[in-house]
Structure formats: C-alpha cells, structure tokens
Design a binder for these strands. Sequence first.
DNA 1: TCCAAAACAGGTCGGTTATCCTGTTTTCAT
DNA 2: ATGAAAACAGGATAACCGACCTGTTTTGGA
Lengths: 205, 205
Amino acid sequence: MPTTGLSRRRTNDPEGLRQRVLDAAEEAFQARGYHATSLGDLMKIAGVTGGALHHHFPTKKVLGLAVIDERVAAAVEETWIRPIEQAASAREGVCATFAAVAAELEQQGFVRGCPLNNLAHELSLADSDFRTALARIYAAWQAAIALKLRSDQDVGAEEPKTDPERFAALAVATYSGAMAIAKATQDVGVLLLCASQFAGEVVVI
Amino acid sequence: MPTTGLSRRRTNDPEGLRQRVLDAAEEAFQARGYHATSLGDLMKIAGVTGGALHHHFPTKKVLGLAVIDERVAAAVEETWIRPIEQAASAREGVCATFAAVAAELEQQGFVRGCPLNNLAHELSLADSDFRTALARIYAAWQAAIALKLRSDQDVGAEEPKTDPERFAALAVATYSGAMAIAKATQDVGVLLLCASQFAGEVVVI
DNA sequence: TCCAAAACAGGTCGGTTATCCTGTTTTCAT
DNA sequence: ATGAAAACAGGATAACCGACCTGTTTTGGA
C-alpha cells in the first residue's frame, strides 16, 4: 500500500462513528428498505469509510440486527410502550397514540410506514435471526398494552370481561395494518378511522 | 453467433410460457421478496431462457407490475372479495375469511404473509407505479366489504348506524396487521384473536 | 408457398454489491 | 515512553444482477 503524502487529521471516536452508521442505516432502511440500501450508500450518508464500517459491522446482517435491536426496538418503546404506560388507561393510550402518529404524519406530508412492520415484512421470512429479533419486539409491544389493561381492571377503570391479550393483539394488529394501508395509499385517513375503534368501552363497528 | 450443431425441438407457447414465469415470480416474490429474487432464479424455476423472459417482460419492473395486476389482485379477489360477496352478511364473511385463512395456514405449517402486504411494504415507497397498482387493490378490497355491509343494512341485517367505510377499513387493517404479526412470530393465534372482533354486532373488546 | 413478424435461445456487458485485505494512525495500559 | 491492540483508511476482488443483443426457430397471414 502506497504511503499517502499528507495524511488527514483523524480523531478516533468509535462509539460516535458507530452511532452515525446506525443513524444512517435506520433512516435508509426505513426509507428505501434493507435490500435496496447498499453499504456504499450508507458510507456516503454517514461519511464513513469502508474500513471503519467493516470494523464495527463485519457484515450487513450484523448491521441489520443492530438496527433492529437498538433502533427499531427503541422507536417502538418511545412511540408506543412509554406513552401507554403513562396514559390514564390502555384505551386512552392506544387511542391517543393512533391520533398522535396520524397528526405527525399529516404534518410531515409523507407516510413512510412503521419501522417495525417495514423490516418485518422484508426480513422475517428470509432469515431466522431477523425473524426472532423482530418477533421479540412485537411481543414486548403487546405485553405492554396487556399489562396496562390489566392494571386498569385492577383499579376498576376497565370492564373485567375484556381479555387483555385480545385487546393488545387487536391494537397492535390494527395499527400495523392501518399503517400499511396509509403507506400504500399515502393517506392517513385510515389511521383515524381505526383509532376510534378503541375510544369507547362498548363500540358498534 | 455460432450455429448449434443439433437444435432442440421447440414448441412456441407464448401465453403458457408467460404464465409459467408469472407462476414462478408470484411464488418467489411471496417467499423471498421482490429484491431478493433475481431474474436468474426465475429463469431456473420457470425453466425459461433469458431471451424468452426478456421478450415477455422487458424489465423486472414490468414483471413486478404484471404480478401485482394479474396475480396479487386475483388472490385478493379469490380470498376476500368473492367470499364476502357470497356470505350471508359482511360480518359473517369477514369473520369466516379470517378463520379460513388461519385454518389454511395452520395446516400448511408456515406463514408467508399476505401477498398484497408483502409487496406493498417492499415496493410502495420505492416506485410510484408500484404504489398506485397496490393502492388500487386495497381500495377494491375495502369497497367490496363496504358494499356488502350497505346491502346488509338495506335488508335490515345490520344496524344502520354502523359506518360501512369504517367497518371495511377496520377489517382490512386488522387482517393486514394480524398477518404481519403472524408472519413475524410464525404463529396464527393472533389471527383467531382478531377474527372474533367482527363476529357479533356489539362487541366489548 | 413464402415472407414478415413473433417467439425463443444463449451469451455478453457494464455496473453494482458485499466482503475482505493490507497498511496506517490513534489510544491506552504498563 | 513504549508496545500492543483497537480504530480507521482506502482500495481490491470476485460474484452477481439486470439489461441487452444477435442469431435461430416457429407461426400465421397473404
């Protein structure tokens, strides 16, 4: 390898560089998908060389798993799990989150879909490791909602005959599907239609 | 181009060959996804040469659009629209279809997901033509359910205050999301949990 | 029968991609 | 201070993919 005449100043920042790569990958995987994003794209976006990228993430799959474990899980945590925990009730939390996401999407004018669902559809069949990592997030999401509803029932804020697991599964499934439709139609209307489902205690659909 | 010493017997069957390619593509796009499937894969599976493939489908995108327009649309038609039309009521039709799909998946032991949702997640953001084609199918699906529910209301088989558009959106969204979760967890349980949502007229979730 | 067009064969080619490798620089424990 | 390990730079490379192209065979209408 030829010696470069003048070498650029360099400041080692392993964790910072790693996070910059994850930033770029989270964004690109969300916007274009895993397969449609090349490592060259990520190198450009993150301003990272091939050597550095390979040092932190030996393969693309390792990077993909890191995005799922560290970023997608955190996004679900922030968007759904924490709001549900802090809400007055599970029903209110679910309903408010639907509305909050719809409002955010409407103001940004473009629907990129749910990060979890996007990666789940593309990767869960292709690779067992991906599938396990993604399934774990779905499970945590549902568990948080079911837990909240059970605590509602304990304080008499929810009818005892409501099945927590069923309610949680329905909330997650409806949200995931509504986001899928919103993404394909580029219209958040379906999110608002579905949100009202969880508003009242007894609903006629 | 060198002349081959002995030429193989050939029987031109343009439509049959085209359908064989669509068969292979529909299956592979569903199992592995659009980007993860190469044209070389399809040539092997369908037993078709590059020349023939290129003759019928000049680009991969043309092939993808053909799969969406001719196969995915037909699958939704067969799995959802026709059963809904022939059902006793919209509610019964939706509920029965959930159960039928769950039963079919359970016996085949593997969840590959909904063809429409799989392709919608991978392609609707990347390309406007793909998005339009996919959105059209979602719209037709919802329209069929809403139409059925309106006819139920006309004959007094459904409460007048049920909003047909909302019911249809909810059914499609819930099914799509439930299939996404079932695919990621490889467990059809969530489908059955969600199906019961549409059974009764008044439901406590 | 004959010929133009459609159908098909089979290979080429440029571009891309993920991985890997060698060499250099920075960091840190001793 | 110093040596080893970590962090990073910058290509190299082999495989792959989609598009395309030339030539051959079949088909069907005139």
